[in-house]
């Protein structure tokens, strides 16, 4: 796998949320506004990149790798938990509004399957630079997924799109034009499930049609031969 492929895989091919279906819990809970998705994404990228770096660094020393082998999961969790706590403390000090709206889900990054999964499955077996790229790719892919879900939910549920703080795009005119009110169902957790389901279905449909096309192309090639 080249570095470019490694970087691009997190966006669509191995998107942690849409394809691997990891980390759905915060994705459903905090995607009520675009600002939350941004904040969660930034916190998540920081934790993932740092944990991937540190864990691949530890595993690059053979002796240390052997030493921590029996307790490696515990070591990983200690590292991830302290990184998350650092993010939490910084956010509470400098971004209190975001901290309040994300609430308990910042601390829950610790038990997010993506972070531990990447540490165990990728960072512990690859070089430091590859792990960093993997962290950035997976983090950006997850953020992209959060942004897509939150855009749909905030627009349909509130008729607004909050970019950051007071910077807000008001799109309620669209609803007024159609003579309906925003569908507040989409701000509830049931609406989140529905949006995730629809997006997954669309992704699957695109993938299926691509596969079918490939199959047909192969068939034609055979016939020509």
């Amino acid at each position: 796998m080249t570095k470019k492929e490694n970087f691009l895989k997190g966006f669509i091919k191995e998107n942690p949320l849409f394809v691997l279906l990891l980390g759905t819990c915060p994705a459903l809970a905090i995607t009520t506004s675009l600002e939350n998705a941004f904040g969660m994404g930034i916190a998540f990228i920081f934790v993932l990149v740092m944990s991937n770096t540190i864990i691949s660094l530890i595993n690059s020393f053979k002796k240390l790798k052997e030493l921590i082998q029996p307790v490696r999961i515990a070591v990983y969790i200690v590292i991830i938990a302290s990184l998350v706590t650092i993010v939490e403390m910084i956010m509470q000090a400098y971004l209190p509004d975001l901290y309040n709206s994300l609430g308990v889900f910042i601390s829950l990054i610790t038990v997010n399957c993506i972070v531990l999964g990447r540490a165990e499955a990728y960072a512990s077996q690859n070089t430091v630079s590859d792990s960093v790229i993997d962290g950035i790719s997976m983090g950006l892919g997850y953020t992209l997924a959060l942004i897509i879900i939150s855009l749909i939910r905030e627009f349909l549920g509130n008729g607004t799109i909050t970019i950051w703080g007071d910077l807000q795009i008001n799109l309620q005119g669209v609803f007024e034009f159609l003579h309906i009110t925003p569908i507040s169902f989409f701000t509830s957790s049931a609406g989140a499930f529905m949006v995730l389901g629809i997006v997954l279905a669309i992704m699957q449909a695109i993938k299926n049609s691509k596969d079918a096309k490939e199959k047909e192309a192969k068939k034609q090639e055979k016939e020509v031969k």
Binding site: L67, I68, P70, V71, A74, V75, V78, I79, A81, S82, T85, I86, M89, I90
Partner: peptide, 20 residues
């Protein structure tokens, strides 16, 4: 030794957290 290694890791992380 394994336990010791784990506690060393915990100690380093704890120190880092207290600094932040």
């Amino acid at each position: 030794i394994t336990g010791l290694v784990l506690s060393v890791f915990a100690l380093i992380c704890g120190l880092l957290l207290s600094v932040v």
